[in-house]
Amino acid sequence: MYTAQPLRQDVVTPDLGKIGKPGPSLAAEVREQSGTDFYRCYQCRSCGNGCPFVQAMDYTPNQVLRLVQFGMRQEVLTCKTIWVCVGCHTCSSQCPMSIDIAAVMDTLRLMAVEEGVAIGKPNIIDFHEEVLRSLEKYGRAHKLGIMLGYKRQTGRWLKDLDVGLKMLAKRKLDLIPSRVRDVKEITELFQCYWRETA
């Protein structure tokens, strides 16, 4: 029986048995984790036009969806947009295809943290980490401690000093943190987090 030979002899036919099943695409992964079907997006750009923070983003929300659809993992996980998004859901409520775009952003942020890629807006992740340190210690957010820790990390002590002093003067920043009595119950919850990101 005649068997077809590849025209170019240097092409190695991959052994499909060895490779096994290909992993899911980025889009499938994000869809699964976010529970959001963004394949419906037809790039109308309502999300980008409505987003209050689009000026500070490197990709508009619809472009982020496109990057995910194209499987451009590196580009999308290292972009600024996913960190600038605060989850106000303006985009989600304006989307004519009712895609929960903010949920996609949530998922992409988590993936960026889990995969340890370079973070597009490092100061924002610094801030979130500072909040978590406070939560781990007291069970509640101690805002003065968070702001001081954040300043220590970013080294920008003078930035916003006037606002901070005004808040102190108005006694809006408590010196002593409000705390949970059973802090052990709280610190236990953080084991999963520090282990995952260590």
Binding site: V86, G87, D106, R109, L110, V113, I125, F127, H128, E129, V131, L132, L135, G139, R140, A141, V180, R181, D182, E185, I186, L189, F190, C192, Y193, E196, T197
Partner: peptide, 25 residues
């Protein structure tokens, strides 16, 4: 009695399990 932070955006961003557990407590 002895409530804790709901987890807020920061826990939600950094770890899903943590965020869930904070609110669940």
């Amino acid at each position: 009695q002895d409530w804790n932070c709901c987890g807020s955006s920061s826990a939600q961003t950094m770890c899903k399990n943590l965020s869930l557990a904070m609110a669940a407590r």
